[in-house]
């Protein structure tokens, strides 16, 4: 595994020319299940994910109040924001797990909210997700969890799945023997890493990481950050991560966006976090009590 230390730069994600040459060049790095349409879309400069005016309220309580967000193809976006600000709801609505009340969500320029269910399911085949709480299947052993999607899509047989699981588990720093355990026999951090292994095992084209390094020790956190960077840089995936760890955000993110009161209030290079010039972001990144963001505490 390579080190997690590529300096995050705002890479030019979408070249203006949409030549077939550029498309072919990408075809080598992209996962095998990437469609030609998405390659063309990427080459033409269409963002991988675009949200416009997405609103969502739960029982009258507004959570998303017009979120606008664009994630260029093959880049890594980090979403920041206070606890309960709607970060998880934002990515769940891109995944189709939460139905927004209003707004448009496009993937490769296709409006997913208006797609028929079958097409939407097909789209999901190319997307991976790490849930905040892991969401491992406790009725299945770890190796079946890790290879669940590959088995479901019949891309490998059960015999090969164990080897493949061991391979991916090794990438997240777990021994092959962990594969035979049940998720309930693992520590919290191990569960997180198994969930991460499950999210990336099928080499998805778009990956969502909901707090990938929470609950891990600092070194393992850095290793996981490196893995996420590899997914983007080496496999050509598009990553959207939620994190509260600023060091980790700077390592994995090309771009960062901050959500506050249901809207994206800032977007910029992840490297500038902490000295971005935006008072809100800097207060958040440096963890200061005084500033434009007021925590609603009762005294």
């Amino acid at each position: 595994m390579s080190g997690p230390h590529d300096p995050p730069q705002g890479q030019p994600a979408a070249q203006p020319e949409a030549s077939t040459e550029a498309v072919n060049r990408r075809a080598e790095v992209l996962p095998p299940n990437t469609t030609q349409a998405s390659l063309l879309a990427a080459a033409a400069g269409v963002p991988k994910i675009r949200m416009r005016g997405v609103k969502k309220a739960f029982a009258g309580k507004v959570v998303l109040d017009g979120v606008d967000l664009e994630v260029p193809a093959q880049s890594s976006m980090v979403i920041l924001g206070g606890s309960g600000s709607g970060k998880s709801v934002t990515i769940k609505s891109i995944l189709g797990l939460v139905e927004p009340d209003e707004g448009v969500i496009e993937i490769d320029g296709v409006d997913v909210l208006r797609l028929p269910r079958r097409d939407r399911e097909a789209l999901g085949d190319r997307i991976g997700m790490l849930f905040q709480n892991g969401a491992l299947f406790d009725s299945l052993p770890v190796w079946e969890n890790v290879c669940f999607k590959l088995l479901a899509q019949k891309r490998i047989g059960r015999a090969q799945a164990r080897d493949r699981a061991a391979e991916v588990l090794a990438q997240v720093g777990l021994a092959a023997s962990v594969g035979d355990l049940s998720p309930s026999e693992l520590s919290g951090g191990m569960q997180k890493r198994v969930a991460l292994a499950r999210a990336i095992a099928a080499r998805p084209d778009i990956i969502f990481f909901d707090e990938p390094t929470t609950g891990l020790d600092p070194i393992m956190g850095a290793v996981i950050d490196g893995l996420i960077v590899d997914c983007v840089k080496k496999l050509g995936a598009t990553a959207v991560s939620i994190t509260h760890d600023m060091a980790s955000a700077r390592r994995i993110g090309d771009q960062a966006a901050m959500i506050y009161k249901g809207r994206i209030v800032w977007e910029g290079a992840a490297a500038t976090l902490g000295h971005s010039g935006n008072a809100m972001v800097d207060q958040f990144a440096n963890g200061e009590r005084e500033g434009p963001i007021q925590m609603e505490l009762r005294r």
């Binding site: 769940k92 995944l95 997307i127 991976g128 997700m129 849930f131 969401a135 669940f148």
Partner: peptide, 9 residues
């Protein structure tokens, strides 16, 4: 876990 099933095809 049910949401996870959906994301796992």
């Amino acid at each position: 876990q049910i949401d996870a099933l959906t994301t796992l095809s």
